[in-house]
Simulated scan of single mutants.
Amino acid sequence: MGDLFVRLADTPWQIAMVLSGGGSGAVGICFRRAGASVNFVEANIPYSRASLESYLGAPPFDGYASVDTAQQAATVARSRAIRLGNGNEQRSAGLALLAVLPTEPSRQDGCRVVVALQTANESKTWVQSIDKATDGERHDRSSAESIADHMVIVAIEHLLSL
């Protein structure tokens, strides 16, 4: 993973992140290294529904952890990357992670992670249902958080391929 961030540091990408409902470990993964500020301009964690609505500037399009809302959040993040970064619209990206993760009491409607990436030329999303582990047991919160963290890494790898 270190190689990923070395490669990222050699690019002009400016990234603003927003995470809601889980996945906050991704901030540490991305920021816990020398030179992280070369590429990351901020990370927001609007955790409550009211906070996410405030970040978006409006109620979500379609639920709090949907593909449409993740894309809405990534678009807001990209505009913040442009404003807070170096102003290079072609190399500014918004990265959003919205999650419904295991909690107590257990959720009846299922758990999932949605990651969205917004650049000047592309909107891309990744969705992962995390209801069952490979052994058929339910994921615990820690394993679900790890899945969310990994999805952010996948999105950054994709960004480097653009």
Rank of each mutant, 00 (worst) to 15 (best):
I45E: 04
M1N: 07
N39S: 03
G85T: 11
R112N: 13
S92E: 00
V100Y: 00
E42R: 15
T103K: 14
E53N: 15
N88L: 03
S66C: 05
D62S: 07
T75N: 06
A93H: 04
E137L: 11
G94V: 05
N86I: 08
Y64L: 11
Q71S: 00
S66W: 12
K132Y: 13
C30S: 12
D109H: 13
D3Q: 13
I153N: 02
Q71C: 09
T11N: 04
A50C: 07
S161H: 00
R33P: 07
L97Y: 08
G63V: 05
P102H: 06
R80P: 04
V18Q: 06
S51P: 06
G110P: 02
E122D: 05
R32C: 15
G23E: 01
V76D: 00
V154H: 01
R138P: 12
R112M: 09
A96W: 00
P12L: 04
P102D: 04
V100I: 13
T134Q: 04
W13E: 01
I45K: 03
K124F: 13
Q108I: 13
Q14R: 15
L162S: 09
D135L: 04
Y47G: 10
A9T: 13
A77F: 07
I29A: 14
N121S: 14
V41G: 07
T119H: 10
E42F: 08
T119M: 12
V100Q: 14
K124Y: 12
R83V: 14
R33K: 07
P59W: 04
L4V: 14
P46T: 09
C30A: 15
L19W: 10
R7N: 13
S106I: 11
T134I: 14
V27G: 12
A81E: 04
F40A: 05
L101H: 08
T69N: 09
M1L: 02
L95E: 00
Q72W: 06
S142E: 12
A73W: 11
A99C: 14
I130S: 10
L162M: 06
V113H: 01
I147T: 05
A148T: 10
S51E: 09
L98R: 08
R138D: 14
P59E: 06
H139Y: 13
I15M: 06
R112K: 13
Y64E: 03
T134M: 11
V27N: 04
Q128T: 13
A155L: 09
I82Y: 06
D135G: 02
Q71T: 11
S37I: 00
D68N: 12
A74I: 09
N39V: 00
G35S: 05
R112I: 10
A34R: 09
